[in-house]
Design a protein around this nucleic acid. Structure first.
Lengths: 244, 244
DNA sequence: CGGGGTCTTGAGCTCTATCAATACTGGTGG
DNA sequence: CCACCAGTATTGATAGAGCTCAAGACCCCG
């Protein structure tokens, strides 16, 4: 991998969503980040926790998950490199969801007290962090819509669009080829679908010539076609420079 | 109506979710709030707007809504008295959803520049506002789960629990009787269900002795039973004093 | 060369949507 | 006060999307 430090990953991400100047970059670089590796399907934060750290995703895919009393799992959002999934915990004393690795992942922990004092002293950074959580909220809104009102085929296409677009936005992938070792079961938990039906929808997307998969590599062969099939509009991701 | 001003409604709500002191109350009271009445099904904010105001709900029910390209509507969250639904717009230049009245409603508009300067000068208020948006996000997460992984009957019960609990939390209703003139079609849009099925689920809840309805009045006869049927746990609402 | 996890396939069934008709309800004007 | 009307609620019947169950194929890894 290139010599991008955990700070660089964090800063790069914040720059895609807000205006960060030299002064703030220096401050962000000063945040101590404790890196750690995890295997897939590991709970980093659990419902009911009172965390004193937030973490930035350095590599891999993280999901925020909730369980119904029947034990069914719902993934409510994905988080990719640079994202700070549980930044929400900074001002919510109790966690209302879990954050789990969906693939092997590397994350960097940052102390809440450090983050809070930085927010107090650097309003532009505070705003950037706040904005980051607002974008999370916008994604949740889109997911409610996706799960509530789109049929399985469209829903599947939509989530693939979001994943690929976000990975591109933070420079993790080129073109529209993503290497994401996510299981079809996890996709089902994100879409509110059974594993079997996920499988069939992926087949249909392949049959339509929109995607191709080899192992865990997902290739959006026909990106315009996929975005159309997925009813995908990037507005809700609130990128500063909406390429694509 | 009692002589509670729009400021009082806002302050009362913020006190249910965070610690507000005398000093901040005075500041909040100084915010100019322009009140306005709307009939049901009126768009207060539309997707694509670049709003310069946020509004506080003074009376009635507001929904954040999105439409798929097929024209299907999804309500992604409800907002009751005291809530500031589009506070998210303070740091998101483009709106990614609509905010519409679901019942006749009274709202109070507050200028963004005023809110921003208050946030800059009063970090505790900034935190309270931020926290308010984080709680919105937590509700969105719960809604993803509700729509994605609960079956219609449970889903219906859950949303009724949320509505009633939140109305109680801000002192709009006593006991568990809510007067909400929301249509079954709107409930369907919130739950990702057809109107017909909403109707049948409500009937089943009545048959089970959990609720009773007379006109627009919704009475949770058996609150413990309803929360159980709805798999409802209040954690995600992040009340400071979780009564009930 | 296993073996556990994942993917794929088939068949039957359930939940929920759709369509269509009928009742109700509150508000309106005569 | 009543007749009317639009919107809403209710009901029945049918269709379809997606689930469940179960079995087999595949694939990576030790």
């Amino acid at each position: 991998m290139s010599p991008s430090s955990s700070s660089d990953i964090l800063i790069r991400k914040l720059q895609t969503i807000s205006d960060i100047r030299e002064a703030e970059i220096a401050v962000l670089k000063s945040i101590p980040i404790q890196e750690k590796d995890f295997s897939a399907n590991h709970d980093l934060v659990r419902e009911g926790d009172h965390p004193v750290y937030s973490f930035v995703v350095l590599d891999g895919l993280i999901g925020s998950t909730k369980y119904t009393s029947e034990g069914k799992r719902q993934i409510t959002s994905f988080f990719v490199g640079g994202d700070i999934p549980d930044l929400h915990g900074l001002h919510l004393s109790v966690m209302d969801c879990n954050f789990s690795t969906l693939t092997p992942a590397r994350v960097g922990f940052m102390r809440h007290d450090v983050l809070r004092s930085i927010c107090d002293q650097h309003p532009r950074i505070a705003t950037a962090f706040w904005r980051s959580t607002l974008i999370d909220a916008a994604m949740y809104r889109e997911w409610v819509t996706n799960v509530g009102r789109r049929e399985a085929y469209t829903r599947m296409a939509h989530i693939l669009c979001e994943l690929i677009f976000r990975l591109r936005a933070v420079g993790r992938i080129q073109d529209h080829i993503a290497d994401i070792p996510i299981t079809q079961a996890a996709l089902g938990d994100a879409l509110g679908l059974s594993t079997v039906h996920v499988n069939r929808m992926l087949q249909e997307l392949r049959r339509e010539g929109l995607i191709a998969t080899t192992g865990s590599r997902m290739h959006a062969i026909d990106w315009p076609g996929l975005t159309h099939a997925g009813d995908f509009d990037t507005t809700y991701l609130h990128q500063k420079n909406p390429a694509d």
